[in-house]
Nucleic acid binder design. Sequence first.
DNA 1: AAGTGGTCTAGACCACGAC
DNA 2: TCGTGGTCTAGACCACTTA
Lengths: 243, 243
Amino acid sequence: MLVTRPPSISEQVDAILRARIREGIYVPGDRLPSESELSLEFGVSRATIRNVLGMLAAEGLILRKQGDGTYLNRRIQEVNTHSGGLWEFSRLIESSGHQSTIQPQQTEKRPATSEEAEMLSLEAGEEVLVLKRLFRADGRPVILATNVVPAGFIHTDPARLDTRLQIREFLMRYCRRKIAYVITDVRSGLLDEDAARFLEGEPGNPLLVLRTFFYDSDNRPLAFGHSYYDDRVLRLRLVQAWG
Amino acid sequence: MLVTRPPSISEQVDAILRARIREGIYVPGDRLPSESELSLEFGVSRATIRNVLGMLAAEGLILRKQGDGTYLNRRIQEVNTHSGGLWEFSRLIESSGHQSTIQPQQTEKRPATSEEAEMLSLEAGEEVLVLKRLFRADGRPVILATNVVPAGFIHTDPARLDTRLQIREFLMRYCRRKIAYVITDVRSGLLDEDAARFLEGEPGNPLLVLRTFFYDSDNRPLAFGHSYYDDRVLRLRLVQAWG
DNA sequence: AAGTGGTCTAGACCACGAC
DNA sequence: TCGTGGTCTAGACCACTTA
């Protein structure tokens, strides 16, 4: 079913370079081989190498200096949003150096509220599937995430759904929908009584509230999420490369 | 002095396309001309066109559909972090549709605290320049930003500094330093008494706290900032394109 | 079948930094 | 001066969507 197309040349080069960084073959502060050397070594064109390096640079993983060379950023470990996904909580937790666990708390199918109906372009009263899940970092609860998906999207027997999947994987597998882009609202909020039962903390504590909207390439809303993010435990840290 | 190199071909194409979007020549939801058509129209190679479109797509401004075409995102107006800069507050405010004003509150030169010294790789007691500024959106105070720069970086007579400059421009003009990348910590916090004097609000209100670290391409810290961001007035909204 | 975007190549020339 | 990354070209072929 899910056709797994072979990895492209760029993806392979990307994987190799990331592996070398991970395994310490390239050490933070190191100067990497030049683009021409890499293109010779891998037997690919320089344009392909540049494409890959461009992505690594955009993540802040490497620093490129015209006339000099390409260097491995000394501060890679400080950042947890490499490759961007602010909404892929498991990866966020793991790339912060913690062990991530997902704990489904509640899965219910119910009519959409009017607010939900509007955000998901549904008729009032159409059903939605609501997934409430708790993410833990090294056992400590950090994120309480609620995701809402139109029930009409789901082609699978509800009893067979794996509610531990990432939302992206969930939409792909059960709804055959591909996320094209995501809009995330970052707001501050206070821990309410309900959320305090899940996240260890006292009601009234400040925390981050993320509202996430998922769309496909036709601008159709696929899902949205509402998450409480305990920033005392897990930093929300973004890198942005300039130029 | 500041050499202003002529805009590259990509920059020109980029400017033209953004202008067409801004002026409504391309309307949200529209299908843009194909890459080949654009490359013919502008007399540049398709690779150059793709380079520019790639950036617009990364910002979520356009959506590209293989086998179909390129479409202008219907939700462009909802997003205020196009081209990324979470720390360029004026642009953030203006691309949210507000009029932005900067109000310098205080400029002082003093020895670095031990925390500042460590973050900026300074010796204890070295001097720093502290800029405290208030950003307003349509007159309403939204961001209280404090930026700390090593005083030794500054080559200009302190009395002649323009304290209304963006931090990027400030570092470039007075310190001849180029920001290579920026790390931003987004945290939740409570309005304290001092900040409440500047931002209209009561102490104890939740708000966003941004801590921003600026580095050059040698990994040297250039500056850091501590900002109170009133998210009731201005949304902090990120787009991330998938794939 | 035709046209779109996605990937990749093999060159060229330029701007810049270190030596 | 030499090697680096930055820009740009003119092609080729593939994957995909639409008709």
